[in-house]
Simulated assay, not measured.
Amino acid sequence: MVRQRVRSISTGAVQQVNVNPTRLRELEIDMPADLAEQRRIVDLLHSCDAQIENEQAEPAKLHALKAGLVDDLLGGRV
């Protein structure tokens, strides 16, 4: 339902769709009336955010590990 509403305010361009931010701010999105359901959704989104942070940190850790291994190999320690 939300997708249909966004499509209704979007304008088509070559191979992409443009949504005006001002019109997007005016878009009404249904929210669960039940506070417990809203909290469950918020908790789920926080969990997703934590997972994203962990996955974004992983490449930096791997890069540091690789740099250390290369340094050990070039330094003759391995």
Score class of each variant (00 low, 15 high):
H46E: 15
V78M: 08
I29W: 00
H46G: 04
P21I: 07
E28W: 04
K61V: 14
R39V: 14
D30F: 05
E26C: 02
P59I: 12
I52D: 05
A64H: 09
V6H: 05
H63G: 00
H46N: 15
V42E: 11
A60F: 09
A13H: 13
L44M: 08
L35E: 11
N54W: 02
L69Q: 05
Q15C: 07
V17R: 14
Q15H: 08
I52M: 11
H46F: 10
Q4S: 05
L24C: 03
N18W: 07
R25L: 08
D34C: 06
N20F: 03
A13M: 10
Q4C: 01
L65A: 12
V6S: 01
L27S: 05
H63T: 15
M1W: 05
E53F: 05
D34V: 09
H46M: 09
D72Y: 04
G12Q: 08
I52G: 00
R5M: 02
L44V: 01
E26R: 13
R77N: 08
D72K: 13
V42K: 09
K61S: 08
G68T: 12
Q56Y: 05
E55P: 00
H63I: 14
D71G: 03
V6K: 03
R77V: 08
Q51V: 12
P21M: 06
D30H: 05
S8H: 06
H63W: 01
P21K: 08
Q16M: 04
E26H: 10
S8A: 15
P21V: 07
V78H: 06
G12P: 00
Q4D: 10
G75C: 04
A33I: 04
R3C: 08
V19C: 05
N18S: 05
N54A: 13
L44T: 09
R25F: 02
